[in-house]
Amino acid sequence: MLAGSSLIFVFVMGLIALAWRRPPDTPPDTTPDGARDVGTGTAPHGVSDGLSDGAPNAGSGIARDAARRETPEGRFVIGLGLAFPLAVLAALLAYGLVVGERLMPRAGPDTVTVSAEGRQWDWRFGYADAPGIETRDVLHIPAATPVDVRITTVDVVHSFWVPRLAGKLDAVPGHTNVLRIEADAPGRYAGLGAEYNGPGYLGHDFTVIAHGPADWQAFLRGDITEGVAADTAKTDRRDAEVGTGTEAGGGSGAQTTAKAPSPTEANETATPEGARSSPSAAGAAPGNSAGTSPRGTTGDAAAVPAPAAPASAPGSAAATAPATGPQDSPRQGDRP
């Protein structure tokens, strides 16, 4: 997408620059298209040309030059103005729709459902497989498993964003939006609230921890307690941030270790696989998709909004997708 845009930009700028070309062999006053003599010296008010900011005083002859070239209207307006963008945009749109279609969540037997509840200014996470556990600002998920995040809010509009795992999806009062995320490998992923929500916006972040199968079972049993709601350290941290406005990082106690890497750090430290869910890759540049690893392109950045009905369960969200089998998931399909 960047390369294509640069090409178009250079093309347009080149066209403009070429407009200053001076074909030497075109005699003046021969053009039939009737571009008028702009200001002949015969006009009673005809004074010298220009407002003294740089042009040579060309006198009354200037306008005749205007008529020297005949440029067909059709080539510019219809060819370049109409046909060219239509072709480019149609291709781009088709590509975007195809990618978007592949990002649709499919129902699968191994899909894990978690809930994310935004508030000013923290996130609380619940787990369908372990109803008793609530974590704050730390979301535990199993790695290499599709996860549906049911996003809600208790106060204002928030947005749930884990840059390396998926795009954004808003938390809108009264609505439940379902986002499909999937982490390829165990590890920590930075998450952010990405909709402005008041004075504490800066510190409205969280960490996603993707576990291997054993750790995930340990978490579900309650053996891993990082971020579990009884731990109130984050609350202190938030207050500190709101107070100073500069304290974005780890604050007190146990949370220091839980401090998420920033998205950039995440991107910088990411393995090559990790880079493919960076924005430019998710933007589905034609070149990128061909160049990324054979394990998949944007399939792991699966994101989909649910229908805006209040009670849309993950199942119902998936039901709106074309009826395809669970094995049809793009990631799996792309795998060799």
Binding site: V12, L15, I16, L18, A19, W20, D33, A35, G50, G54, A55, I62, D65, A66, R68, R69, E70, T71, E73, R75, F76, V77, L80, G81, L82, F84, P85
Partner: peptide, 18 residues
Amino acid sequence: AVQIFAWIGTLWRGRPRL
């Protein structure tokens, strides 16, 4: 795009002053 290329075409047809 139609407008932009019509303007560029106008520049091509004329003799622009800077």
